[in-house]
């Protein structure tokens, strides 16, 4: 032990008699602050939304009416839009993210893994307004000009699935929103999958290869079963992000308070309707209360999704 270290260890008890309790108190306060903040937000949203819940009762959740002139509000359209866009986004994003993670962990040459991983992480850092503008000025015109008219004339004519691909080709709509959301959540899901795929012990994979398995068979029979729970947890993280996304969706969803009957039909999400209608809502009005009630509902939905992802991720991380 050098002299310097000795001095520190000697003086340590004296300092801690004042410093440690203060530091501990500050740390404790910071920790509690998060809980108080979260609880406060939930309570405020619920109390502010109470008059809407009172006025419309449980019907608030199942009414598709959003009529600011007559002051009649229902949450069904935004809830429907939020769930449908998020789930569609997952359907698009999960296979792609799986491909990315599979390629990065099993197939890609070592020199390529780092740049691609970095690119994925950078994608996650792009602000959502940028995705919104890119969606509105690049994706929407392409959808309106080429994709939607072509699809409406071909797939739209088919029986059974045809009705899902009809309607005027605005370019915006549920499908476009889901596509933008998919691009936004791919980085989260891909990064989680890559990390958990890496946790599979090499000896398992080597044994499988030794038995003559192909790369795909190793993936399907060894890696996926081993990481299944964590993969689902990562998907839930992506879902949580898709549910709450606001600006990017607002740009491309068409912002219509009707239940979309086709994939090209415009719709609305909870986050987007709150962002759009909030500035023109007067204090104390039923509209403001309904918007805050929607915020509360979104909070509950996100909370459930996050809770599920926590539960699923925990055992995976321990392993």
């Amino acid at each position: 032990m050098t002299l310097q270290q000795a001095t520190i260890s000697l003086s340590a008890p004296r300092r801690s008699s004042i410093g440690d309790p203060i530091f501990a108190a500050i740390a404790k306060a910071s920790g509690l602050f998060v809980l108080v903040l979260l609880g406060g937000i939930i309570v405020v949203l619920f109390v502010a939304g109470l008059s809407a819940f009172r006025a419309f009762g449980p019907g608030f959740l199942i009414s598709d009416n959003w009529d600011p002139v007559r002051e009649e509000y229902g949450a069904l359209v935004p809830i429907f839009g939020t769930m449908v866009t998020a789930i569609l986004a997952l359907l698009l994003a999960v296979p792609l993210a799986f491909g990315i993670a599979f390629y990065l962990t099993e197939l890609a040459p070592t020199w390529l893994r780092r740049p691609v991983s970095t690119a994925i992480e950078l994608l996650a850092a792009v602000p959502s307004i940028i995705y919104g503008m890119w969606g509105f000025f690049v994706v929407v015109p392409i959808m309106a000009e080429y994709v939607q008219p072509a699809v409406i004339d071909t797939i739209g004519e088919l029986p059974i699935i045809g009705p899902l691909f009809q309607g005027p080709p605005f370019g915006t709509g549920i499908l476009t929103a889901a596509m933008i959301l998919a691009v936004m959540i791919i980085p989260f899901i891909a990064a989680t999958m890559r990390d958990v795929f890496d946790t599979v012990p090499a000896v398992y994979k080597e044994s499988a290869y030794g038995l003559g398995c192909t790369t795909w068979e190793v993936m399907r029979s060894i890696v996926i079963p081993y990481t299944r729970v964590s993969v689902v947890g990562g998907i839930m993280l992506g879902l949580g992000r898709a549910l709450g996304e606001t600006m990017a969706v607002t740009f491309v969803i068409g912002n219509t308070n009707r239940i979309a009957t086709t994939l090209f039909g415009p719709g609305n999400t909870i986050a987007s309707i709150v962002a759009l209608e909030f500035p023109e809502s007067e204090a104390g009005s039923l509209k403001l209360s309904s918007l805050l009630a929607l915020g509360f509902i979104l909070f509950v939905i996100s909370f459930i999704v996050l809770a599920i992802s926590r539960v699923l991720l925990r055992p995976g991380l321990k392993a």
Partner: peptide
């Protein structure tokens, strides 16, 4: 008539 209404048709933009 209001600052936002229940539109019977069309699509909205910001």
């Amino acid at each position: 008539a209001a600052t936002s209404v229940k539109w019977p048709a069309g699509a909205g933009a910001k």
